[in-house]
Design a protein around this nucleic acid. Structure first.
Lengths: 241, 241
DNA sequence: GAGACTGAAATTGTATACAGGCGGCGGTTC
DNA sequence: GAACCGCCGCCTGTATACAATTTCAGTCTC
């Protein structure tokens, strides 16, 4: 069992294939064809398939085997609302229970980094923004100090098209999108402020509203579906209205 | 592949073993020993192990293999709060989006059944209560009409010691516990009322508070740990304070 | 012409055989 | 006497062979 297992290789390879739209939504996946395609034997491949079912990218078909999931816009909206709710819970509990000074310092450093990325010379430093944004959301997941909660928060952000970085790809040129980053960062600050002040209700409300920014980005992405599908992982799985 | 697969058999057998405390918390599980013990070969057994890891009953150990999870009281409290939050989201969306008359009728029938179970001759009809209570919680999960949400709500209730029926076993003799059933049923009614009236905020708040009843039951169960451990699945996995 | 039944092929689910680490135990050395 | 090194065994992860079921095609019947 090498440091990087065959199962992990199969998992990432398959996830990439599905998210980039290599298969039609609803398409049934043949295990042997897949194992040949990615060069991994069926056993770890089946393990990977099971994981992707748990992630929601695939569904088991009753007669056996798996097929690629298909989503409606409503599904994605619900998944985003779900993520916002879970992050809201984490934020509220963090505020109510208190967060150590070291963790607060970490969060402030992340937000300062995002500030810097927003005003970088030559426009927004997009890769840095994406990285730091993801890190801040991970911080929220951990902030309540609960293993159960951080686990579920991370999971909630992993549903397709749901994560905080889901739409932070290839929209660099969209001016309205860039402006929404300022709003997002304002909300980051408000969230941290509320947690620091022990304002659980505010922290929860801000976290929820923050997630709803993703909903706007989803609508924009779908509106420009033709040019976006190739660049936003998972968008190919969303059925047109 | 029979209608009931080996994997399913392994899954239920293993889950029962773990929940009834057949292993110590933190104990490492040997695949070959297990496969011999429950009479199922390693392949479907490994599949079952993976599912139980997803459920949170087991954890993967970095060097390979799985071990039984150990929980603190705080973990269980957090998991219950999480379930309440998710059910609260489902209830709020159900209220905001509206629920069809057929579904409302179903819910009313369930609640009338619970009423009947509470005043059955010869005391409370416990098995009926447990069954109907679980059904009502499933109804909540479905009420928002969102596949994503019902999926996550069911999952949230499946974390160990977290589900609405987790403590509805063998506490029949506890008088304070029986009285809490009346409170629970009041909350059921309030929840349905709120959903019917489109009162999203109230529906969410009631659902959250309702879940917190389980917290009280948890504390009671832990206080009487010695006599309860054998009867409440999963209690053996909770580390003493 | 449509539908149902039979057969075969393909595909999944299961079992087992194999290989590579990880841990434990004993030996050796300082 | 203790600590480090090396070997051996067990265990997990992986691959492949096998069996059972599903599905599809073809044909026969109504």
């Amino acid at each position: 069992m090498g440091r990087i297992s065959q199962t992990d290789k199969a998992l990432t390879a398959l996830r990439t294939l599905v998210l980039t739209g290599a298969f039609e939504p609803g398409e049934k996946l043949s295990e042997i064809a897949l194992s040949a395609r990615i060069g991994i034997s069926r056993t770890p491949l089946r393990e990977a398939l099971g994981r992707l079912v748990e992630e929601g990218l695939l569904e088991r078909v009753p007669s056996g085997g798996c097929q690629v999931s298909s989503y409606t816009m409503q599904d994605i909206v619900d998944a985003i609302e779900f993520r916002g709710t879970v992050e809201g819970l984490a934020a509220r509990l963090a505020a109510e229970r208190g967060v150590g000074p070291a963790a607060l310092t970490d969060a402030n450093i992340l937000l300062e980094g995002i500030d810097a990325a927003l005003v970088a010379k030559g426009g927004v430093d997009f890769p840095a923004y994406v990285r730091l944004n993801a890190a801040f959301h991970d911080w929220i997941a951990e902030a309540a100090g609960s293993a159960v909660l951080s686990r579920e928060a991370v999971r909630a952000a992993r549903l397709p098209l749901t994560g905080p970085s889901a739409f932070l790809t290839r929209q660099e040129s969209q001016v309205p999108f860039l402006r929404s980053l300022e709003v997002a960062q304002y909300q980051h600050r408000a969230l941290l402020e509320a947690i620091e002040a022990g304002e659980g209700g505010r922290a929860e409300a801000v976290a929820r509203e923050h997630a709803r920014l993703a909903r706007r980005n989803l609508q924009a992405a779908v509106a420009a579906r033709d040019t976006m599908t190739a660049h936003i992982p998972g968008l190919a799985l969303v059925a047109p209205d």
